[in-house]
Computed example of a mutant assay.
Amino acid sequence: MNMIYGQPYSRLWRASQDKAQQTIGAAAIADYVNRALLTEVMLTPKPGLVDARNCGAHYDMDINTFLASARAIAPWWPRFLEMGHESAGIAACLSLPLVRPIGLQCEQAMLQATHGINTHKGAIFSFGLLCFAAGRLLTNGFDLTRESMCAEVAGICSGLVDRELRGTLEAGTAGERAFRRFGFPGARGEAASGFATVRTTALPVYAGLRFDGVSEEVALLQALLHLLAVNDDTNLVSRGGLAGLGYVRTYATKLLQAGGALAPDGAAKMVAFDDALIRRHLSPGGTADLLGLTWFIAQFPAVHEDARI
């Protein structure tokens, strides 16, 4: 029997295994999250971000910091799934308070491993919600598809932006400050939308290129450029204001017009983009989370027959 911190963890496994049409069961989901985190951090070169080439626009973390963080939080993904199983009978819009304590404990595990450095806080929020949603869906007899998981997260986070951003008296985090000043809802808004930016921008690009035989690395870099061209990244706004956000968007758009990562000199241009953001101390950390989510969501079947959708 699988155990999590002394708790039996076989019920959810049986629930997924008993479903004859279930193509992806609970046992695979935590592994997908771990692989998504590692795939994102190892992807190189990523403009302004930690990767195998350098520390990006950061001075307090490197790739080893991220690897240590990923190891520390890995045991928590099954717990998010189990809590989804336990809350399956509760309406989605009322279930968020049940999973939040696990998210906070997962963050503490991260901070202990990184000596107080925030490497995966945004990822814990988003991937924790997806695991929680998957546990609910499996228990209630639904297939895990890209659409069903994103829709469940949207239901769980219904009203979240109004409650926690519009109703915030003091802006404590970078995301809260960005919303107060510019109206950017950040990770909360992305989750409440069912990860709309991932579904409408990055996922079609990544899945389509993979369908056409393009390597995973190049497909992810191309998807990253598409995200950088449109995402209201609150990390960029925190570091460089609207000017910094605009600089990254314009740079990414120009690269895409020239073929992006698919161009013959695409790798060299990504290196130059990386160097440019490092000089300006710009790091699109929120977009990095969306890229990891893109890879994760792509592992699940789409309702549409066309695998590129």
Rank of each mutant, 00 (worst) to 15 (best):
I156M: 04
C150M: 06
E176L: 13
A154G: 06
L144G: 00
G155F: 02
E190A: 08
L137G: 02
L224F: 09
S193Q: 11
L227D: 00
L165C: 08
S148K: 07
R181I: 11
G183R: 08
E216V: 13
A223W: 01
G159F: 01
G155M: 06
L225F: 09
G175C: 08
A223I: 11
L160T: 07
M149G: 02
F184G: 07
R136P: 06
L209F: 06
R199A: 11
V205S: 05
A192S: 15
E147N: 09
Y206T: 15
R166I: 10
E147L: 10
A174I: 12
F184A: 12
G155S: 14
T200H: 12
M149S: 06
A171E: 08
F184W: 10
E164V: 08
L165W: 03
V198A: 01
V218I: 14
P185N: 11
R146E: 05
E216I: 15
Y206L: 14
E170F: 14
D212Y: 05
D143W: 00
A191D: 03
A207N: 00
V218W: 01
A154P: 03
V205W: 00
M149D: 01
Y206N: 13
R177D: 14
E190H: 07
E217I: 13
F142P: 04
D143K: 01
T201L: 08
V214D: 04
R210E: 11
A196W: 06
S193A: 14
F211M: 15
C157Y: 00
G159Y: 04
L169F: 10
E170W: 11
E152C: 12
L165T: 06
T200I: 15
A219Q: 04
A178P: 06
L209D: 06
G208R: 07
F142N: 06
G175W: 02
S158V: 08
G175S: 07
V198I: 11
E152W: 04
V153C: 03
R177M: 15
F179S: 09
V161L: 02
A207P: 03
G135T: 08
D212I: 07
E190W: 03
R177F: 01
I156Q: 02
E216M: 10
R146D: 01
H226P: 07
M149H: 00
R146N: 07
T201W: 00
T145H: 05
F211H: 15
R146L: 09
E152D: 15
T168L: 12
V153S: 01
D162Y: 05
T168Q: 12
F211L: 15
L227W: 02
R177W: 04
A187W: 00
V214S: 06
L144K: 01
L165N: 05
R188G: 07
L221K: 15
R181Q: 15
F184C: 10
G213N: 09
R163N: 09
G167V: 05
G186C: 10
E176F: 08
P204Q: 10
T168P: 03
T200Y: 06
G194V: 02
F211W: 13
L221F: 06
A154V: 02
A192E: 15
A178D: 05
A191Q: 01
S148E: 06
T168V: 14
Y206E: 10
R199M: 12
E216L: 11
P185A: 13
A219V: 11
V161G: 00
A151S: 12
L220G: 09
G175T: 05
L169W: 12
F182I: 14
I156W: 04
F179V: 11
F179I: 12
F142L: 10
A223H: 07
G172Q: 13
A192G: 09
D212K: 11
G167Y: 02
